[in-house]
């Protein structure tokens, strides 16, 4: 940009252009965090289900601890990659805060389940699906809103089924709530970036 005297219309054009540029900031693999936690939950649920069926011991339930371990390791790996990100939007912060609140709540409910007999799979699937719906609303990404809402409704099945099958239902809810929209988010963001790069290379 050269140093020159601007007219008021040029000033407005610059303001408008820069605000548009900032809005068009698309993150690569936008659904990665959702996929990490979704797959961590599904893999753990399948292991718990198999343990429940073939071993049947109470200690199998401590296996739920695998979810935060895989999830945290995955998140740390993604955070390390994200350091290459050149910009942080207000939306990034809002989504971070949503998941800090829902993550802490989920952790507290899980710990409570070891002390009191509560339908923990119902509460966790409700909380996480609600988190996805909120993420969808603030980011204006409809697949999160729709899949999260379906997850909220499906979570009531965890109140009806209380045996080993409830663990498979729980895994199914996470597949609908996190895996499907997570892959859609990755595909959409990568296609947008691809399109943006083609346009930029033509300019």
């Amino acid at each position: 940009m050269e140093k020159k005297l601007m007219s008021e219309k040029e000033s407005l054009a610059i303001i408008s252009q820069m605000i548009t540029n900032a809005k068009n900031n698309v993150q690569e693999n936008a659904g990665s965090y959702t996929l990490v936690w979704g797959y961590a939950t599904i893999i753990t649920s399948i292991l718990i289900y198999l343990g429940w069926i073939y071993i049947g011991a109470q200690w199998i339930m401590y296996g739920w601890g695998i979810i935060p371990i895989i999830g945290t390791i995955g998140t740390l790996i993604l955070n390390k990659r994200e350091k290459k990100k050149l910009v942080k939007t207000f939306l990034d912060s809002v989504i971070n805060y949503i998941w800090i609140v829902f993550g802490v709540l989920g952790g507290m409910v899980s710990i409570t389940a070891f002390i009191y007999n509560i339908p923990v799979l119902f509460f966790i699937s409700q909380l996480m699906s609600a988190g996805i719906v909120l993420t969808g609303f603030v980011s204006k990404f409809k697949p999160y809103v729709y899949c999260g809402t379906i997850g909220v409704l499906l979570s009531f099945l965890c109140l009806y089924f209380r045996g080993a099958e409830s663990v498979l239902i729980f895994a199914g809810i996470f597949f609908v709530t996190m895996i499907i929209p997570g892959h859609i988010a990755n595909r959409v963001s990568n296609n947008l970036l691809k399109g943006k790069n083609i346009v930029e290379s033509k300019l």
């Binding site: 820069m18 605000i19 540029n21 900032a22």
Partner: peptide, 8 residues
């Protein structure tokens, strides 16, 4: 104008 729309 760029920074007004971003956190950083």
């Amino acid at each position: 104008s760029l920074l007004i729309s971003l956190e950083e």
